[in-house]
Computed example of a mutant assay.
Amino acid sequence: MLVLGLESSCDETGVALYDTEQGLLSHHIHTQMAMHAEYGGVVPELASRDHIRRVLPLTRACLQDAGKTLADLDAIAYTEGPGLAGALLTAAAVANGLGVALDKPVIGVHHLEGHLLSPLLAQPAPSFPFVALLVSGGHTQLMAVHGVGDYQLLGETLDDAAGEAFDKTAKLLGLGYPGGPALSRLADLGDASRFTLPRPMLHSGDLDFSFAGLKTAVLTLVKKQGELGDATRADICAAFQAAVVDLMTAKCWNALKQTGLKQLVVAGGVGANRQLRAGLDAMALKRRLKVFYPPLELCTDNGAMIAFAGAQRLQFARTAGPFAIRPRWDLASLPSTSQI
């Protein structure tokens, strides 16, 4: 079965073709980072308009790369939610339009499920069950994943998501947009031991996260330092990143202990962070566990994860027609399926 996946939930336009027998055939992503940099964050109206400009050319490019045509499609999957309402409408409209024109089924995919399942596109890939760390600009959650749609929330952030904390801290330090990657690059040049920052909820006894206090500690440190030189700024970045990695690593290990599972899956944009991967790999090696990541190019929002998740949910496909988007959508409401 050949599935076209369309992603337009925020500031990346992603299109991909996934074949249930041959795997991922092609994928293209256009990021809007440069456009939003002038404003220091995502402008929803601009994001929506750019998705409209990009989605059809990217679809043509995917089909051409794979040597396929629209007539070869068996189904179309798209991000139904959650996300920015205007942005979501682009993929929803194109997917349902193609469904009507081609008389093909259409599958609305939960954005977070796409991220959760994206490491299954890696080689080697994990098998069910596993603990998943979903860590991005909008979400920081630990879940026990027993199958497609069978997700148990173990813990989540009580305030800022990890990616949001990276971006806000970068802004405090006068770094450019997007802040998270800029902070991580500068952290590689710094000395994490120069400053001591807190690890909020490290010993809380549960699997929840909190990053607001860490962000406040950075603000206090910046004010105390006065004018920041390049070396000081790099050292603060390194100390902040080390604190986040310590928190993530400890919580992941606790989640694995509590569930008795031996596999950890990491997904979402922050999952591309090199220091986080190094910390989790070291933990896994010490504890004789396995950790899996999606390919780096599939950590951010992308059409491949949507096509793949859609392929797992073909039995829930519907006839194209009137459609709705879900800017807010609880992952727990998804039906479970054993297909994978």
Score class of each variant (00 low, 15 high):
51 H>Y: 05
45 E>Y: 04
78 Y>G: 03
51 H>C: 08
70 L>T: 03
72 D>G: 02
52 I>L: 15
72 D>E: 10
52 I>S: 11
58 L>P: 07
56 L>I: 10
44 P>Q: 07
61 A>Q: 15
73 L>T: 09
50 D>N: 15
66 A>I: 12
81 G>M: 06
49 R>M: 05
78 Y>H: 13
73 L>D: 11
60 R>M: 07
57 P>M: 13
47 A>L: 00
64 Q>P: 00
73 L>Y: 14
60 R>E: 15
69 T>Q: 06
74 D>Y: 05
60 R>S: 12
63 L>T: 05
57 P>H: 11
73 L>S: 10
68 K>Q: 13
44 P>D: 04
72 D>Y: 02
63 L>G: 07
60 R>D: 14
63 L>H: 08
52 I>K: 07
47 A>M: 00
73 L>A: 12
62 C>L: 11
66 A>K: 05
66 A>L: 10
62 C>E: 12
65 D>H: 12
47 A>F: 00
46 L>R: 05
48 S>K: 01
77 A>E: 02
54 R>E: 14
71 A>V: 02
78 Y>M: 08
78 Y>S: 07
46 L>P: 04
78 Y>R: 07
52 I>P: 01
64 Q>K: 14
66 A>R: 04
73 L>C: 13
77 A>S: 14
57 P>K: 13
47 A>R: 02
59 T>M: 14
77 A>W: 00
44 P>T: 01
50 D>R: 13
50 D>L: 14
60 R>Q: 15
79 T>P: 02
53 R>D: 10
72 D>M: 10
72 D>I: 08
57 P>F: 11
59 T>N: 07
58 L>I: 08
44 P>C: 00
60 R>V: 11
46 L>S: 07
54 R>W: 01
65 D>R: 14
53 R>M: 09
82 P>E: 02
80 E>H: 09
68 K>T: 01
45 E>P: 05
60 R>P: 12
71 A>N: 12
59 T>E: 02
70 L>H: 10
76 I>V: 15
78 Y>W: 11
57 P>Y: 09
59 T>A: 09
78 Y>I: 10
72 D>H: 13
74 D>I: 06
67 G>R: 03
80 E>W: 03
58 L>H: 07
57 P>C: 13
54 R>P: 00
73 L>N: 12
44 P>V: 01
46 L>A: 12
55 V>Y: 02
53 R>E: 14
65 D>I: 02
75 A>K: 07
46 L>I: 07
64 Q>F: 01
46 L>G: 04
55 V>S: 03
49 R>S: 04
48 S>F: 00
82 P>T: 02
48 S>P: 03
47 A>C: 06
66 A>D: 11
66 A>Q: 09
64 Q>W: 08
51 H>N: 13
45 E>G: 06
66 A>F: 06
70 L>G: 07
57 P>T: 13
71 A>W: 03
63 L>C: 08
79 T>Q: 03
